[in-house]
Amino acid sequence: MPLSRRLAAELLGTFWLVFGGCGSAVLAAAFPGLGIGFAGVSLAFGLTVLTMAFAIGHISGCHLNPAVSVGLCVAGRFPVRDLLPYVGAQLVGAVLGAAVLWFIASGHPGFDAVASGFASNGYGDRSPGHFSMAAAFVCEGVMTAFFLFVILGATDARGAGPFAPIAIGLCLTLIHLVSIPVTNTSVNPARSTAPALFAGPAALDQLWLFWTAPLAGAIVAGLIYPLVANTWSGRARTGMGRA
């Protein structure tokens, strides 16, 4: 598949992840009576990845996440030469998704992206549960490592085959159920960057953590999975790990 088509797929997929996942949190906050709640937001993030993995997994691998692309590179599943273009496409898609979400949310009287947090990630006073920076870093690193481990296992040639997107989407849902109180859940630097651009300086000041911790976790998983699976050359059979 030509790189241009793969990048277009990554842009659209990451748009959908940010618009759908963050949108469920931003718009649900404006209408608490709808009842989507904490579990609904977690499910929304999982569904964005599950649906896009089926839609574009055969085109780009459906990474939608710089940490996923880095982890797949480390594990030998993705060419290093395509890493920066993929990350660029993911960031553009994420920002466009956040921009469209901001435009829609601004149509509600009294909406304030900075005051609401705009589904951005944070620690300390910006953590939903006021968790410390150290707790946030460990949570994001561990969650991303296990997310990559599931991706690598589910998309292994000996793995879940056409059902891999289901395992990956449910894994992301589980991650959100555990970590929303800690950081509002990132495990994805592109997902963190886009809302932070609209949420003000406080969100941008903490953005470093939501790049370093997920990337560190992804690298660890990329090193560990091939050792556990006894392969450094396994190719993904469907979605997420193939490009």
Rank of each mutant, 00 (worst) to 15 (best):
A221H: 11
F131I: 00
L17K: 09
A160E: 05
D82L: 13
F118P: 06
R126D: 04
V41G: 05
A157M: 06
D156M: 10
F147D: 05
Q206D: 02
A196L: 01
D156S: 15
F78A: 03
G222P: 11
P162E: 14
F146I: 10
V150W: 10
G200D: 06
S233V: 08
T231G: 12
A53P: 05
A105H: 01
L96H: 01
D112Y: 08
L7Y: 09
L152T: 08
S192C: 07
L227P: 02
I56T: 14
G159Q: 14
M143F: 14
Y123G: 00
S116F: 09
A98Q: 03
T155G: 12
L170W: 10
W16F: 15
A203V: 01
A145Q: 05
F210Q: 01
T238Q: 12
G153K: 11
A243N: 05
A99V: 13
V70H: 07
P109R: 09
T183W: 05
P195I: 02
D156I: 06
A89R: 07
L43W: 11
T155R: 13
L84Q: 03
G35K: 02
A157W: 05
S127A: 10
L91K: 04
L84I: 15
L170M: 13
G76E: 12
A30I: 04
A229Q: 14
L7P: 10
S42Q: 10
A55M: 12
L101R: 03
G61C: 10
I166W: 06
A216N: 04
T183D: 00
G239E: 06
G169Y: 13
A203F: 00
R191L: 02
I56H: 04
G122D: 03
T48Y: 02
L7F: 09
L12D: 07
F163H: 07
